[in-house]
Design a binder for these strands. Sequence first.
DNA 1: TAGTGCCG
DNA 2: CAAT
Length: 211
Amino acid sequence: MDLFSAQHPDFVSLAEGACWLPGFALPVMDTLWSGLQQHLSAYPPQQMMTPMGLMSVRTSSMGSWGWVGNSRGYAYSATQPGKHLPWPAIQPVILKLAEEAARRAGYPDFVPDSCLINVYAPGSKMGLHQDKDEMDFTQPIVSLSLGIPATFLFGGAKRTDKPVKIPLQHGDVVVWGGASRRFYHGVLQVKTNIHPLVGAQRINLTLRKAR
DNA sequence: TAGTGCCG
DNA sequence: CAAT
C-alpha cells in the first residue's frame, strides 16, 4: 500500500461481511444532492413514532417500499404515511451508487427496492437497533452519508456488544451483510456544524431489499 | 427495544 | 432497565 492509500484507505473492514468505504460516493455527490433536494421538497420528511416514543430524526423514502414506524411497531409500506399514494422510484444515481458500493463490498447481486432517507438536524440521534423487518437477510444494507459528520455505532449480534465508533463524513458509504447483516447499529447525537453543500444537517440514505 | 430518564 |  502506497503512502496515499495508507492515509486514505478506500476499504475498512468492520466485521465479517461489513465494511466502510470512505469517500466512495464523492464523485456523484453534487448530482445526487440535486436530485435528493427535489425529493425532499416533494416528500417532506416526518418524525416517525415507535413503540418507545417519537424519533428525533425525520424520515422520507423512495422505492417500492418505504419504512414506517408507529406506536405498535415497524413495517414496510407501499404507500406514504396517511396517504394512498406510492413512493417515487429510487433515483437512478442513487440506485447505481448503491449497487456499485455493494459490489465493491462483495455483494454483486444487490437489488434494493427501498431507500430510507433519515434527516438528522443537530441534536438528532438514533439508538442501537437491528434492521430485521426485511425478508431476505442474504441481501446487505448499504448506507450513504451526506452533509455534516456523525459518529456511527457499529455493534454486534447482541445489544450488549460494545460498538465500534465510525466517524462518517459526506460521501462515505458503509455496507453490512453476511454474518453482520443483523448487527446492532446506531448514531450518536449529531453535533452542530455546517456542510458547504448540504447545510446544517446530516442525511443518511439506507438502501435495502425489503421484500 | 429505530427512546428516555432514572438509578446506583 | 422499565413497559411495549
